[in-house]
């Protein structure tokens, strides 16, 4: 309590700290504000570099062009499918595996744990993995975005740590009711772990949403491209947006607003959903930090 009294003083160090934190916040927020502003601004202002914080000559033409682009929609749909199918699948496999690993009585428990932890420090590398994925016939298929990266060892270990912390009594009551381990897992453990499952599920979802690597390595068919690839093609490989992206004159939309609009369109869902899910993410990071 002594401390609180002392800290109420508005000292110079505390002022500096507050300023520093404000600077951090500004550095995080500003790029987004800037991108949104440019994407909404009129050409004249963009050309003269007059946008620094707020949009000028507000219009939505860049967004009209971007949203008319079929590639954006196709890839959006693909990404949603990858996330929608991949995340639950990963979650299920991870939870089941982690549960088994949390049971000391499972045969080979030690071997399996070692085997899994080892992959965190050493792996076959890009090309051997590519060849395996290829020989499984996954290259250029829907599943190449889901299966080769289905389990994150980190998440698996977090889950296992969590399951280790569950009270044994719960499961024993299940055993008395004549449930097998699978039954206990499905009927007792899973319902009790919804918060952790949500956390890990979200990590998987974000991972798949942001996954560019798998698409780069395994996908050639543009009908399967996830959002990240299309985004990269438009923003960095200068593949223009359809329907007017390459016009000059009356219908011209400048390069920067177009690219910024593309970035915003593909990032907004994440930014909108994030504040509501933040507590789960934080929780996940904390489970991970508990040494287990």
């Amino acid at each position: 309590m002594v401390r609180t009294r002392l800290r109420r003083k508005w000292t110079l160090p505390r002022l500096l700290i507050a300023l520093f934190l404000l600077a951090v916040t500004a550095a995080t927020v500003y790029p987004f504000l800037y991108m949104i502003s440019v994407s909404l601004s009129g050409d004249v202002y963009v050309i003269k570099n007059e946008i620094s914080l707020l949009p000028k000559g507000v219009n939505f033409r860049a967004y009209e062009v971007v949203l008319q682009d079929a590639r954006i929609w196709t890839s959006y749909r693909n990404t949603i499918l990858y996330v929608g199918i991949g995340a639950p699948l990963s979650l299920l496999v991870t939870a089941a595996g982690a549960y088994s690993l949390s049971k000391k009585e499972m045969a080979f428990n030690k071997t399996f744990t070692l085997m899994i932890v080892f992959t965190m420090f050493f792996n076959g590398g890009m090309i051997p993995t590519f060849l395996v994925v290829k020989s499984l016939g996954l290259v250029d298929s829907f599943w190449s975005m889901i299966v080769p990266s289905a389990i994150s060892t980190w998440n698996l270990i977090i889950m296992r740590t969590f399951f280790l912390g569950l009270p044994k009594e719960l499961e024993e009551s299940g055993k008395l009711d004549g449930l097998t381990e699978i039954g206990i897992f499905a009927r007792i453990v899973l319902p009790l772990s919804t918060a952790s499952l949500a956390t890990i599920g979200l990590f998987y979802a974000v991972g798949i949403w942001n996954n560019f690597y798998s698409a780069l390595l395994y996908l050639r068919n543009d009908q399967l491209y996830p959002l990240q690839v299309v985004l990269r093609n438009i923003v960095m490989a200068s593949q223009m947006v359809l329907n007017g992206g390459s016009n000059v004159g009356d219908n011209q939309v400048l390069d920067e607003p177009l690219k910024y609009a593309t970035i915003i369109v593909s990032t907004v869902p994440m930014l909108l959903v994030y504040p509501f899910l933040q507590k789960y993410f934080v929780k996940g990071a904390l489970i991970g930090s508990v040494k287990g």
Binding site: A107, L131, V132, P148, I182
Partner: peptide, 30 residues
């Protein structure tokens, strides 16, 4: 012990398959 933990092993199976296929097979691919 193996028999007693067969259900756990079943639960672990997908995980095992994944690690063998995508982590250990590539190591042999080296």
């Amino acid at each position: 012990r193996l028999g007693r933990s067969k259900y756990l092993l079943i639960l672990f199976l997908p995980c095992l398959v994944y690690y063998v296929l995508f982590k250990y097979l590539p190591m042999f691919g080296l």
